[in-house]
Design a protein around this nucleic acid. Structure first.
Lengths: 148, 148
DNA sequence: TAAAATTAGATTGTACACAACTTAATTGGC
DNA sequence: GCCAATTAAGTTGTGTACAATCTAATTTTA
């Protein structure tokens, strides 16, 4: 029989460390990404596009689990910085295709050193990184499989 | 010798699942906390105060790793909702003490069922929750011990 | 002890997040 | 073929986050 008397103690919470760590990691990314004039969510969008050019807003959103309310203004800022172009699809005018500009493509080379810099800056072992990645993905998959 | 050729692939990243999971969890919290008319960060502030009444903005911020730029407006919203009061400290007028109002204290009873509801809603095993908590805290501690 | 340094909050400005809603294009039934 | 339902983005409004800066109070130190 479990007791729930002390459930509302911060240090007993599991979700708070996750929330705090997620923010800490963004803070560690910041100086590395500042050098490329991008934010962390913009970096994620670029990674999605480097992997597969010309995806629609929806496709990017599914990958990153972000909706148009977040993506539309974010993509507009990236367009202003000449990293991407936004164009209505010919075959379906509802969709907007996001294409990398030459400078957006070129950014990939500059970003190539970011992952290694992060491992260095985080100062944690590969083992720990992999554990975290594995369990986070496991839980994410479970959440994804039911509702969405 | 490690290869870094594929480091910029989203599915190889460790930080993205963390970022995505953190947001998913907030989404799962939302309906539970909506019933109490609070947001997740406000819930965290309340937990800090339920544990120890009358802390200053700084003390709350250290606990939650949030600065006054985030906390001041958040606390003002909580004050508007009559959950807390904000009062300059007599002994040091720079500091602001945050006190729970009667309804802020009463909220604790209503929130008592939230942790169990979360475990239920998350639908993951205690084992997984604990693993995640343990490793996130381990990494957080490492980050805390150096930088600040 | 008076000026300099530090500290605590507040403010400003930018950038996410996300719910709720709107608009326009497409699709599915009939 | 037409209309209802669906879909994709965009818009609106609220609430974080956080860097940078400001202001006022307190400490330090010369």
């Amino acid at each position: 029989m479990m007791k729930h008397k002390d459930d509302l103690i911060l240090s007993h919470q599991a979700c708070f460390p996750l929330y705090a760590l997620s923010r800490e990691i963004t803070t560690i990314y910041r100086p590395l990404l500042d050098a490329l004039h991008i934010t962390y969510p913009q970096y994620l969008v670029l990674m999605v596009l480097w992997e597969n050019e010309g995806q629609t807003v929806n496709q990017i959103g599914e990958r990153l689990r972000l909706d148009s309310g977040t993506l539309t203004p974010l993509l507009k800022r990236m367009e202003l910085k000449k990293m991407i172009t936004r164009k209505r699809k010919e075959s379906d005018e509802r969709s907007v295709e996001i294409h990398l500009s030459p400078s957006g493509k070129a950014l990939k080379k500059e970003a190539a050193k970011v992952p290694a810099q992060m491992v260095e800056a985080l100062g944690i072992s590969d083992e720990e990184v992999n554990q975290l990645k594995r369990i986070a993905n496991k839980i994410l998959d479970k959440i994804k499989d039911r509702g969405n």
